[in-house]
Amino acid sequence: MSAGQCAGAERFQYLQALVTEFQDTDSIEAKEQVLANLANFSYDPKNFSDLQKLQVPDMFLDMLTEDNENLVEFGIGGICNLCLDKAMKNHILSAGGPSLIINCLSSCREETVLSAITALMYLCTAASRAEITAPPVVECMVRFSLSDNRRFSNLAKIFLEDYCTEQQVEEARSLSQHSALGIPLPKD
Score class of each variant (00 low, 15 high):
L15C: 13
E21M: 13
D58K: 06
E171S: 02
A156I: 01
Y14P: 07
D24V: 13
V19R: 13
L175H: 13
L71W: 01
L61M: 09
C80H: 03
E166Q: 12
F60L: 07
F152A: 01
N70E: 12
A17D: 15
E131G: 02
V19L: 15
R173I: 08
A30P: 11
D62T: 03
C104L: 10
E21T: 15
D67M: 09
N90K: 10
F152E: 09
E32L: 11
H178C: 13
L15K: 11
P57K: 06
E66C: 06
E73K: 03
N40S: 12
E170A: 14
Q33V: 11
L82R: 06
R173N: 04
L93D: 03
M88E: 09
M121S: 03
L64G: 01
Q55H: 14
Y163Q: 11
T65M: 05
T125R: 00
L175M: 07
D188W: 01
T165P: 00
L61N: 00
F159V: 04
G182V: 00
G4Y: 12
S176M: 06
F152V: 02
R151K: 15
S153T: 00
C164A: 08
N47A: 09
S42R: 12
L155C: 01
A180W: 01
P57S: 04
I79L: 10
S106G: 15
C83D: 00
C104Q: 13
D58R: 07
V19G: 14
A126E: 05
L15H: 09
E161D: 08
I158R: 02
A17N: 14
L35T: 07
D148I: 06
R11P: 05
F152C: 08
F159P: 00
A95I: 08
T133E: 02
T125G: 03
L105R: 04
A119N: 03
M63C: 15
I183S: 07
P135M: 02
C124Y: 09
S106T: 05
S107E: 08
N90C: 12
Q16W: 09
G8I: 10
S94G: 09
F22D: 09
M121V: 04
I92W: 04
S42N: 15
R11L: 13
A7S: 10
Q55K: 13
I76Y: 07
E166P: 11
S145D: 03
K53F: 14
E73S: 07
A39R: 10
N37S: 15
A17G: 12
A180H: 01
S94F: 11
L18T: 07
R129G: 08
I183E: 10
C164F: 07
C164I: 00
E66P: 03
A134W: 04
M121P: 00
D26W: 13
D85F: 10
F12E: 06
T133A: 10
M59D: 07
T20L: 14
P184E: 10
K86H: 03
G75D: 01
S145M: 02
A172I: 05
G96M: 14
